[in-house]
């Protein structure tokens, strides 16, 4: 891959390199960088929060790249990528790079190519990388496969205290943000989460932020730097493995023909698995 143009600082070169990787070319790098994952249910304000974070980093003179994931249609394969709508800072500031990513046939909240896309960004000098997952639920932790720091975004009015007691993504996150702190009920939501977390062993900061007014964003930026890097846990390794396993299927050259044969009952699932295991 001709990445020299991108390394030299060309945005177009970077975009084209990212496309190659998104289309299946594997890429890794030794360059360091911080990958910040933003996850949470649809409508809690992830995109607006990402916009606020990007603006905060840019104000400090730091470059920041955003990979924002939205779902692809399981029927047509197309996608409506609407995260830019709420990220106007990305269109204005040279310190901000923003790229929309579709899940392209993968079921996780973060497609497997995103790790390699983050590697391209690191290689080209983007040391802060924010990944916004698709709106996701409690049992969706694929973000752990790629992010160094995971922020779970919650919002007032999304459910009662028992939601924070359930197992799932909440056990893997580094920071919990109660967004929309300008709305009524944010204090109660934060208190419920803090209460639920107090029974656990991990000390997870719970922060109130308003992406609408910008309140609390400065503290969040500080907290992101203060969260200790605990290394790669077994759960993260599991997600990385699952992500690469998924990639083998979704980028398999014969996937379409295997699906055709399944659809027309020429083969069964067991035979399809055997066909997928044939490396091309």
């Amino acid at each position: 891959m001709d990445i020299d143009k991108a390394r030299a600082g060309s945005r177009l070169g970077l975009s084209q390199a990212l496309s190659l990787v998104e289309n299946g070319l594997a890429f890794s790098t030794e360059e360091e960088g911080q990958v910040i994952g933003i996850t949470g249910a649809p409508g809690v304000g992830k995109s607006c929060l990402v916009d606020q974070l990007a603006q905060a980093y840019a104000r400090n003179g730091e470059k920041v790249a955003i990979l924002a994931v939205d779902p692809s249609s399981p029927i047509s394969g197309g996608a409506l990528l609407g995260d830019r709508l709420r990220m106007e800072s990305a269109d204005l500031d040279d310190l901000v790079y923003m790229r929309s990513v579709a899940t392209r046939g993968e079921t996780g909240a973060v497609p497997s190519v995103v790790a390699d896309m983050a590697a391209v960004l690191k290689e080209c000098g983007w040391k802060r990388i924010i990944i916004e997952t698709v709106g996701s639920g409690q049992a969706e932790f694929r973000i752990a496969a790629v992010a160094d720091t995971i922020i779970l975004v919650e919002a007032p009015g999304m459910g009662d205290a028992i939601q924070s007691e359930k197992a799932g993504i909440i056990e893997l996150v580094d920071i919990i943000v109660v967004n929309k702190s300008d709305l009524e009920g944010a204090d109660a939501t934060a208190a419920n989460i803090i209460s639920a977390l107090s029974a656990g062993s991990k000390d997870i900061p719970v922060m109130q932020v308003s992406s609408h007014t910008g309140d609390g964003v400065t503290y969040l930026v500080q907290a992101i730097d203060e969260v200790a890097d605990s290394g790669t846990s077994r759960a993260q390794w599991r997600e990385r493995l699952a992500s690469q396993w998924m990639r083998r299927m979704s980028h398999h050259p014969n996937l379409d023909s295997i699906l055709d044969e399944l659809e027309s009952s020429q083969i069964n699932i067991g035979e399809a698995i055997l066909l997928l295991e044939v490396e091309q």
Binding site: S73, S76, G78, A79, L80, R84, L85, S100
Partner: peptide, 10 residues
């Protein structure tokens, strides 16, 4: 989108 393209809306 329904024709299978990835559409980015500004």
């Amino acid at each position: 989108r329904d024709a299978g393209h990835e559409v980015i809306y500004t």
